[in-house]
């Protein structure tokens, strides 16, 4: 599948944004985070900023961005529509909580604010899950309709959001060692899921063949003799994207280095340093993690094979 930059930015940056928003609101609701006004302001600005950036990026993938609001209508059958609806619903309780936390100086762990926090966290999780399900529900792309796709989206969103939360906590001198530890574990878990996913797709040769696609298996093996057109068409541009296995291997290692190795080393080092030193290390940790996810997301598209390519001479998909 063609890796479109708009969709790659959309899925990775909104993932981190909802991860940060959900974690911050949930932890505040349980009284684990301090109800500091400026900290709240920074947290909401950063998470809303990431979410808005990602959602705006997603509209660059549309032929008619001005009609994007129409995508709110079909939530009963379409995961894309559900994602759109949930992403907007999340703004309800989160903006109300932000008002209470920042403007009124309310304690986010006290009722009713804690309920707005918990609602925000739940809606954030559901939004990231629906983003993943847009892909994980597509039968013609077997590498997307894979049981590890949704957990990888969710865990990577939480882990990258958690690293940004860590940046804020260090910046305000409110660092919580347990939180840094938990985020490190989440990051490790997320990439383990991703490694398991790569292992699984490398060993599954693809269920579908040209014999399957054309239904001509009864005639024997099927080979393309003549393509229907000599130049590209939309289908080949969009679904025919292929990446060499060697390049994929390099990019996977790069994604692991940037997304997992770098952030873990920097987060552990940050925990051992005084406040500003820790802050200085936590920023590149969070930045590297996002870069790693961007590479991972690029691969998620580039390595996915669509069954329509079987009509065009692909051996398996």
């Amino acid at each position: 599948m063609h890796p479109a930059l708009s969709v790659i930015i959309f899925t990775s940056v909104t993932g981190a944004g909802y991860g940060l928003l959900g974690l911050m609101c949930a932890l505040a609701a349980f009284g684990i985070l301090p109800g500091n006004r400026l900290f709240g302001l920074a947290g909401f600005v950063l998470s809303f900023g990431a979410i808005a950036t990602g959602l705006i990026a997603s509209t660059f993938h549309l032929g008619h961005p001005g009609r994007a609001w129409r995508a709110l209508s079909q939530w009963r059958s379409s995961w894309l529509s559900r994602e759109a609806v949930l992403s907007i619903l999340t703004f309800g309780p989160s903006l109300w909580l932000a008002k209470g936390w920042i403007l009124d100086g309310a304690d986010p762990a006290a009722a009713p604010w804690r309920w707005y926090g918990l609602a925000t966290a739940a809606l954030s999780l559901l939004t990231v899950i629906s983003t993943a399900m847009i892909y994980a529900s597509l039968k013609p792309v077997p590498r997307w309709r894979h049981p590890l796709v949704m957990p990888a989206y969710l865990l990577l969103g939480l882990a990258t959001g958690g690293l940004w939360l860590n940046v804020l906590l260090h910046g305000f001198g409110l660092a919580i060692d347990d939180l840094a530890g938990a985020v490190t574990v989440a990051l490790l878990l997320a990439w383990l899921v991703k490694i398991a996913y790569w292992y699984s797709i490398d060993r599954a040769p693809g269920r579908y063949t040209a014999e399957h696609a054309t239904g001509l298996w009864s005639q024997g093996s099927v080979r393309q003799l003549e393509a229907p057109h000599v130049q590209d068409n939309y289908l080949l541009r969009e679904m025919g994207y292929q990446i060499a296995r060697r390049h994929a291997g390099r990019l996977r290692r790069l994604a692991l280095l940037a997304g997992l190795g770098g952030p873990i080393v920097l987060t552990i080092a940050a925990a051992l340093l005084p406040r500003w030193g820790a802050f200085a290390l936590s920023v590149p940790a969070a930045g590297l993690a996002i870069a790693g996810v961007l590479v991972e997301r690029w691969l998620f598209f580039a390595e996915a094979k669509h069954v329509v390519t079987l009509f065009y001479g692909a051996e398996r998909a």
């Binding site: 599948m1 032929g63 129409r70 995508a71 847009i134 597509l138 039968k139 013609p140 669509h306």
Partner: peptide, 11 residues
């Protein structure tokens, strides 16, 4: 809106 998702969903 030209989101192209239908083309991805069609085998």
């Amino acid at each position: 809106i030209g989101c192209k998702l239908c083309s991805w969903a069609c085998p």
